[in-house]
């Protein structure tokens, strides 16, 4: 036991019974009415008398007292056009990922996707703010040595090389905002009692990325991906570990369907957490919808 806790509890044994009549907050913890300082007893709040000091009407940020302000001198910045509409991918570094694996927050014996990362409670994603998933950044790529089946939304060449050098598999996959909303809080989504949505295809401007074998896109041809794995190994100068001989081969090649959000669960199913049952649609119309 802590020495101080011991002391305090021993003191308690010799004091009268703690009851509603003899408790109080720490002295000085309450809020004082005014600051009570100087000439005016706090009623001027330190702002003084008259002028911009009192009225707080300071010049606006960037105002240059009559000059054409710097921020208005160049009125057109086309490289920012539509930046508020672009897809965002909040970063997660490889060092962070390795730390999550080291502290057992992520189970490497199963494929790792956005759901596994969100379930740690240490990564935040807001699909309603145009955030479209994890970007794995290369900080800590040199120490990364976990053999995993990883699925992220954005990764650069170095990250892909670091994962594959460690004997793992990486793929980049697109999720539409509705699917992401289901993934960020799985428990809350199941409690809503709505069918698992089907995943949408990437928008036209993202199609190229997600069908590029060198980016390990989930829509790329698997044979071309295995070619690209070799090409990348030669470029960075490491020998590619053979995943065919790996004891965890089954886990390493497990992939989601392009329409699927959760491993092992199909779109259209409804999960009932209370009765622990899964409802599967039987209707022809629904089956056709979710299969397409």
């Amino acid at each position: 036991m802590s020495k101080t806790t011991d002391k305090a509890l021993n003191l308690m044994r010799h004091l009268p019974r703690v009851c509603l009549a003899n408790i109080r907050d720490n002295p000085g913890s309450g809020k004082k009415r005014s600051r009570g300082r100087a000439q005016h007893g706090g009623d001027y709040h330190g702002a003084g008398n008259k002028g911009s000091g009192q009225r707080q009407n300071f010049m606006r940020l960037g105002y240059e007292t009559g000059n054409n302000p710097f921020y208005l001198r160049f009125p057109w910045e086309p490289y920012y056009r539509g930046h508020h509409l672009r897809r965002q991918y909040p970063p997660l570094s490889m060092l962070d990922l390795q730390k999550l694996i080291d502290t057992n927050r992520i189970d490497t014996s199963k494929p790792i996707d956005l759901v596994a990362i969100m379930n740690t409670g240490l990564y935040r994603l807001f699909p309603d703010q145009r955030q479209f998933g994890v970007q794995l950044t290369d900080e800590g790529a040199d120490i990364f040595c976990a053999k995993i089946n990883l699925e992220v939304q954005w990764a650069n060449e170095l990250v892909i090389a670091a994962v594959e050098k460690a004997g793992g598999v990486i793929s980049t996959a697109y999720y539409d905002p509705h699917s992401l909303q289901a993934m960020v809080n799985v428990k809350k989504f199941f409690e809503r009692g709505v069918p698992i949505p089907r995943r949408m295809m990437p928008p036209p401007d993202a199609m190229e990325y997600y069908s590029d074998p060198s980016k390990r896109g989930y829509l790329a041809d698997p044979e071309k991906i295995s070619e690209e794995r070799l090409v990348l190994a030669q470029k960075f100068g490491y020998s590619l570990p053979k995943i065919e001989d790996d004891p965890n081969y089954e886990m390493l090649v497990e992939k989601k369907d392009p329409r699927q959000i959760f491993y092992g669960l199909h779109p259209g199913w409804i999960v009932n957490l209370k009765d622990k049952v899964i409802l599967k649609p039987q209707d022809e119309e629904l089956l056709r919808y979710y299969a397409s």
Binding site: M1, S2, T4, T5, A8, L9, M12, V18, L20, I23, R24, D25, N26, S29
Partner: peptide, 19 residues
């Protein structure tokens, strides 16, 4: 468990709860 039954007797927190 000492974390539940023999922790720091924070009278201020007790007071804040009762208030």
């Amino acid at each position: 468990h000492p974390t539940v039954f023999a922790t720091n007797p924070r009278i201020d927190l007790i007071h804040q709860n009762a208030r």
